[in-house]
Simulated assay, not measured.
Amino acid sequence: MSKIDQSEKYINEKQLCFSCKNKAVSFEKLMYKELQEISEHKVHLQFRKGETIAKQGAFITHVLYLKKGQVKVYNEVDYRSNLIFSIHQSGKLLGLASLYGNDHFQYSIAALEDSLICAIDRKVVEKLIARNGSFAAKVLESVNMDLQLCRDKMVSLTMKQLNGRLADTLLYLSYDVYDKDEFELTLSRKDLAEMSGMSTMSVVRTLQEFQKEGYIENENHTVKIKNKKALHDLSQTG
């Protein structure tokens, strides 16, 4: 059975939100009838690696829940380059910052691996936020985390040199994305460049320098952080 066939079987078994064992943390605050309401106003979508999930400038009609997979959230600066804000694993609600006001996506979302998305009617989510204070608090917590990530990104890109920027990216991947010091890197060198505000050539050169200094090992798309303190020092000194 192929990966996509397995995904279809998974979807068919988990149609109802209240029976789903992989709900968003904020959805744990919803009552049975509220989860039933979401179940009646959502669709399941499958995306293959590399596919665009949401397009910058498109109308926002749904909040997106990443049920399975990995995605990148990025701004399309021009036709040649992007700026990647964040990488997300399964369990993340996407598009929350666009609720209550924005009619268009301010960024794009693309799949870094085969992914499953629950697309939930935006108006239903907004109504539940208005009715359920505990749910609203969890949604706000998620929005605040994303906002802090953007602030940290701004500091990194505007105040730090190349070594500090790439150190920030590697630490972010270790702490926030993969939650370990050795991980299979699903991002391309171009993705790393777009996360760090660098050229692809600069990323390749800086990775080689980090490996030469013994900060990391980087072989066969696997990165192992060997000296996290050194990366923290680079992040602090810029």
Results as ranks from 00 to 15, higher is better:
Gln36Arg: 11
Ala58Tyr: 11
Tyr74Ser: 15
Gly133Ile: 02
Ala167Val: 04
Val25His: 03
Leu16Phe: 12
Ser108Met: 02
Phe210Ile: 04
Ile129His: 06
Arg122Gln: 12
Ala137Gly: 00
Val143Thr: 09
Ile117Pro: 04
Ser108Gly: 11
Ala130Trp: 03
Leu171Ser: 10
Leu35Lys: 14
Leu187Gln: 12
Thr61Met: 13
Ala58Met: 13
Glu13Lys: 13
Ala24Leu: 01
Leu234Gln: 02
Ala136Arg: 10
Glu126Asn: 07
Gly57Lys: 08
Glu213Arg: 05
Lys228Glu: 10
Asn227Arg: 13
Asp179Leu: 03
Ala136Tyr: 01
His232Gly: 00
Val124Pro: 06
Lys67Tyr: 14
Ser188Leu: 07
Leu96Tyr: 14
Lys3Asn: 07
Ala130Gln: 15
Leu192Ala: 06
Ile4Glu: 09
Lys224Ile: 02
Val43Asp: 03
Glu209Gln: 10
Phe183Asn: 08
Val204Asn: 12
Leu166Thr: 09
Gln6Ala: 05
Gly101Phe: 07
Gln161Pro: 07
Leu147Arg: 10
Asp103Arg: 14
Glu51Phe: 08
Ser188Asn: 08
Lys190Gly: 07
Glu194Lys: 02
Lys224Glu: 02
Leu171Gln: 11
Lys180Ala: 04
Gln161Tyr: 08
Arg131Cys: 06
Tyr65Ala: 09
Lys55Glu: 13
Glu126Ala: 07
Ser108Phe: 03
